[in-house]
Design a protein around this nucleic acid. Structure first.
Lengths: 368, 368
DNA sequence: AATGTAGATGTAATCGTTTTCATCGTTCGT
DNA sequence: ACGAACGATGAAAACGATTACATCTACATT
């Protein structure tokens, strides 16, 4: 592998000049620059990034710490991160870890020195706490941290507002006995969605009923199992809000097996709007979260701090969600089969933009 | 940030000793080692990986080059890679690129010097070719490269055998007019699946009919659109093999809209066995590919070469696939609702193991 | 007691860059 | 025509580790 010295010798210049050519730093004569470039490409020279980052204290890499969960949501977030990274010429170092504080600290330690900034998806409260002191002296951005006391740059989605809108929609359709399939306990997104569910009930004057909150863990199979518990409840709920789409899929499957019709016998709303939501039968009404944008935005927020290696300022931002009305909720759809959803801005937090997007859906999926 | 010098000074030893303590290389007195460790942790010292890799020529990182496609398959592969990496204390640098040769070369160049080895998911033939000369002097492992002339370490899945089994299964059920929804043109996996489809037809003495091969690109919407084309074919096919599950989902959705019953009016088999396949209605008969294992195995294969930084030996290995019989193919299922699939070993290539796994499915998804 | 040996530790070179500062022509204002 | 200013380039000192080699000590061997 050719080094900067080889290029310098071959081109008859000093290594400083070669370095300048590659960094476009000080002004070098066009002729020399061109010559150096020619020689460099002939020798197939490329700057050694270890040597470079040793002296510059920059790695041009961002770490992404994921929870152990996987699925479409995460892969979309990574995709967004990757898109932004590529645009900004940064590398992405991914690393997953069990959610517990100990392994998170270990993972962060292993990443240390290899990255200029860190994006942490820490869906659990203790995970968030574990990152706290590190974030005070390193550029860290938390994804979906929920409400926490620690001061840290964070980006979350409007879980509460989205869930509220979903449940409110069911209430507006006349439902009163509305169950919810919860997410994993300790998961902050799940917690906020539950809070939104409760708030919507309370605001409509519907009493809180603990037995309507069914256990779940975001997996299809937990949704499947929740359906069985659901059907044992008397009087039977007429609607159910699933904390994510995967569980909604499990629900649909179990309900079909039990000959419970969706939405006639039981209305259903999910959360996330994963790609296949519109291809399910019935087409799933759900709360759209733009996971890809979340990742992209996280990178955008983090990069300025990563470049200067200063801790990110403790500013929280919340991405809006959109209720996508399809068929599983049983809403009457307009003649063309399309309904309108509105964008939910988080209360009391800054939001990304002001527009309220109108969402038409319910037509042929292929057209969307 | 404390350096090795700070620790050495503080502990009253030389930097060489500190280095030895952290690398467990030469024997150091237990007392000194313990003392150094104490001081190091007090100063919150951690070896600078740039400096370390500058002199050792090792980065302890593996690059993963992905195509632009996303979805469950890729996220599962990454998950497998990540699992193996964590076990072996390697970092994972992901980078996606358009499939064309030019951007792949650019991506490889950007990764150069930061990684000890590279896993490339190159579903296209030209992408594979682009990597060729690089692989001759660097540890590279190709995923899903299909049959290519270049000598390179590779890992693929038994596309041909899986597709053959799927179509053969449909033939055994009495179907003769069997269509196929193709994958993206140029995609090698898709090509092999198509070859398996044709082979199964040929072996059963069914003539090749080009009009039964419908365009698709692995997306749900392309499956949806293919269904429309499918229904215009006269005489109408009685079965269809989709080159992946996402397209099968699009097909199911479109067929339902058109009141075509699956499997009664049209039998359907997919490919990949994504998580939700068993929750679809009807439950999808498909060819299982263990994407996670693929990633894990890739890492296993690559690491020995990455450690020594020697080009991987040009050896190809193929992971078996399994036909999972559920309801969408219309097969009669045993009394307990379960059917048996068998594992397909690639012909003429080495396979991972000899077992022929029996797969029972068709029961309640929650129980699987 | 002299010598050999082995284990523990230190010294210093090295990895491949970036960057400060010095140097050396040019050109320009007067 | 002369010094100033400036633009292009080079020399050399970091950056923070690893490691070959040297050194030193303690102890066994003769």
């Amino acid at each position: 592998m050719a080094t900067i010295r080889d290029v310098a010798r071959e081109a008859g210049v000093s290594i400083a000049t070669v370095s300048r050519v590659f960094n476009q730093t000080a002004l070098v004569t066009d002729a020399t620059a061109q010559h150096v470039r020619t020689v460099a490409s002939r020798l197939d020279y490329w700057p050694n990034s270890a040597a470079r980052s040793l002296i510059t204290h920059r790695t041009h890499a961002i770490g992404v710490l994921l929870p152990d969960l996987y699925g479409e949501f995460f892969s979309e977030v990574i995709r967004g991160i990757d898109m932004a990274a590529r645009r900004e010429k940064y590398q992405v170092l991914v690393s997953s870890s069990r959610a517990n504080a100990e392994t998170i600290v270990a993972a962060v330690r292993a990443l240390r020195g290899r990255i200029d900034g860190l994006i942490v998806m820490a869906p659990d409260a203790d995970a968030t706490a574990a990152i706290g002191d590190f974030a005070a002296r390193f550029p860290v951005l938390l994804l979906n941290p929920g409400a926490t006391a620690i001061e840290v740059g964070a980006l979350s989605i409007a879980n509460h507002e989205g869930a509220y809108a979903a449940v409110r929609h069911l209430i507006d359709l006349g439902h009163r006995r509305i169950a919810m399939v919860m997410g994993p306990s300790g998961n902050l997104d799940a917690g906020e969605r539950n809070a939104g569910y409760r708030q919507a009930r309370a605001d409509a004057g519907i009493a809180h009923l603990p037995e309507l909150e069914l256990a779940g863990d975001f997996s299809e199979s937990s949704g499947f199992q929740a359906a069985e518990a659901l059907m044992r409840i008397r009087p039977r709920p007429t609607a159910v809000f699933a904390a994510n789409d995967y569980m909604a899929i499990g629900l649909i499957s179990a309900l079909r097996d039990a000959d419970v019709r969706v939405p006639q016998d039981l209305a259903l709303v999910g959360f996330d709007d994963i790609a296949i939501a519109q291809y399910l039968s019935p087409m799933l009404t759900t709360v759209r979260v733009d996971a890809c944008e979340l990742g992209e935005r996280a990178m955008q927020r983090l990069l300025p701090f990563a470049r200067t290696r200063r801790p990110a300022e403790p500013h929280r931002e919340t991405l809006p969600t959109t209720l996508i009305v399809r068929h599983s909720c049983g809403a009457q759809t307009p003649a063309n089969g399309a309904t309108v959803g509105s964008r939910h801005r988080p209360r009391g937090t800054r939001h990304l933009d002001d527009r309220t997007s109108a969402v038409r859906d319910g037509g042929a999926p292929g057209e969307v």
